[in-house]
Design a protein around this nucleic acid. Structure first.
Lengths: 346, 346
DNA sequence: GGTTAGCATGACAGCGCTATCAAAATCGTT
DNA sequence: AACGATTTTGATAGCGCTGTCATGCTAACC
């Protein structure tokens, strides 16, 4: 049977409350007393019982990560989780994963349900949940603290979480393509409930505008964030009378789809086609040719979002929106535009 | 303030204990009473408080997944997590992730520490933790329940968890290569603390033996489970006087490294070289050419391991070792052996 | 020395639930 | 109808901690 707070109190010759103070880093404990308590706790190998702590303190010491279920196994989420776990580790908090179906009609109810059941002290929301204004309003009503990652939507108050200038990053990517001589640059857009998709599309248009290239509707296809969406988008673009020499896909998975389709058709990358992604997943380095993409520091984003959330739980008013840096990763999939247009076989 | 068990008891005109019985599916509650309690609970939107439940019941309703930290973001782990979450969902249990450093000298202590702190009702161990006999012994001593996934090591009692015949799968993969005409088949082995590495190597040798091909030490290189290990292994093999026409890598990540290196050298896959992996990660489908590999049903493995663990928590004596099926996924990276040996450029 | 403020500590109730055991209700049997 | 066996229900005491509030102690000031 593990030691209880009372055992430590007796061993240290103080009251339970004093032990509690020491373990919660409360002020007004004499240094000598603190040392005595810590020694006693160590000798007894004491660890506070989380359930008792939660029950008495009326907090769960738990934060939930809410994300879309179909993305449950994506490396984006995985990295965020790793960062979040790191932040929790340092604060004696636990992380709980809540993959929920965003596409379900009552996803707001599902979030509420999850809160009612597990009573987390706060939530971390990633797109598309982070962009759902109705959900955020409901959370505000319920007085539930939350941090968002890469949320686009405006809300009535200061946000907490992380943000990355995806629009600027996308524009920079296009500038890179233009610098390589590309003029016909296509975009495979992401799903629109994700704020990121709109940003990346906007950045794509910014990039074209700055380069003086006219926006051509035919070069923008609706895709999605999946490998299959990339394949479908590529097929659509390759079927054009004047196909693009470069394709900027909304994320790495769909960019991989584009590459796969191009290579299957016997095209050479980047000789015949340059491909650009977004996210910098591990896969983007593992594919051949390795993918030119925008690095998002997902692990840091998870960690920072959790840190800010925990700060705001500790002290309402604390916690901010932290801007994280992106980084262009130029790899093998981008190269000079082909000098003469090339007809695509089959 | 959420409703408490007493509120429900009053509303239903029964005692708290009866409400408790209903919510814990205990027997000996009249059907009519049960219905009345359920109606009252629903009307009050009652959800039992997990902390109170844990404290009073002396269980945490928590299971931990223990895995190696550097693998924290691998799709293997991610899929296992998804399966584990699904099993927990159905049992009112929570899942906790414990990425720990296996390479650290006191990793056993780290596991103990984690148990002392969070008091999970059980653990799920994946390799290399699942293969660490000293760790398992310690857990047995402590009376901690655990399930293992793909563990090789023998222990003194019946195991609980999942197992997959990796040896047979590897042998089958080699048989596939041989059927394609390959005679010089290399293997890039995984890290040896992972039982799986030894199995896959053994299966490789089985496969050769059955095909009447002599085992050639030069064709087996020590690698690891990483992309980089695959690249290093490929370089080593390509430097041989008589390089292999097929490479079986210990997992998909290293197989991707092999392909990357081969393609970088201008080789054509599968014309010049066939490549085989193991795991069937999403990446294996996304690379080009897509990778021939062995599918492990990771999601099911996570789910089943959790289910068996929960069964054994509920009822010591329950819970078994479940054999899960593998499946050869023949894709684009494997093809007929080149008719004449081809010298490797560069 | 006496007074006061502020720091340090402790006594105790209670968080919301389950376990224990006793009591009541019901059933089957004679 | 009476009895015992069995099922169903309830009263109550904690589980191990923190919050509240009271009290003891120290130091600083006049």
């Amino acid at each position: 049977m593990p030691a209880r707070i009372e055992d430590v109190a007796v061993a240290a010759g103080v009251s339970m409350k004093t032990v509690s103070r020491v373990f919660n880093n409360e002020p007004n404990v004499r240094e000598k007393t603190r040392a005595r308590v810590e020694a006693a706790a160590k000798a007894l190998n004491y660890r506070p019982n989380p359930s008792a702590r939660s029950l008495a303190g009326n907090r769960s010491y738990l934060i939930s990560l809410v994300y879309d279920d179909p993305a449950a196994a994506s490396s984006y989420i995985m990295e965020i989780i790793v960062g979040m776990l790191a932040a929790c580790e340092n604060s004696h908090y636990s992380a709980m994963l809540r993959p929920l179906e965003y596409s379900s009609a009552d996803h707001i109810r599902a979030v509420e349900e999850s809160i009612a059941q597990y009573r987390p002290d706060g939530l971390i929301l990633v797109p598309p949940f982070a962009d759902d204004v109705r959900l955020l309003q409901r959370l505000d009503e319920l007085g539930v603290r939350y941090a968002t990652i890469s949320a686009k939507a405006k809300i009535g108050h200061e946000r907490i979480g992380t943000i990355l200038d995806e629009r600027k990053a996308a524009a920079e990517m296009i500038a890179h393509a233009v610098a390589l001589g590309h003029q016909r640059i296509a975009h495979i857009a992401g799903p629109m409930p994700h704020g990121g998709s709109a940003w990346r599309l906007a950045g794509y248009r910014d990039g074209l505008r700055r380069a003086g290239i006219e926006y051509d509707e035919a070069l923008v296809v609706n895709g999605g964030f999946s490998f299959e969406a990339g394949i479908a988008g590529a097929r659509q673009l390759f079927a054009l009378k004047r196909p693009p020499t470069a394709i900027f896909a909304a994320n790495d998975d769909s960019a991989c789809g584009v590459m796969h389709e191009a290579l299957d058709r016997g095209m050479s990358i980047p000789r015949d086609l340059s491909v650009f992604g977004f996210d910098d997943t591990p896969t983007s380095r593992h594919v051949w040719p390795s993918l030119t993409t925008v690095r998002q520091p997902c692990r840091d984003m998870g960690r920072i979002a959790a840190e800010q959330l925990l700060a705001s739980i500790r002290d309402a008013g604390a916690g901010q929106l932290v801007r994280v840096p992106y980084e262009l990763q130029v790899r093998q999939s981008s190269g000079p535009a082909p000098s003469k247009p090339r007809s695509i076989s089959r």
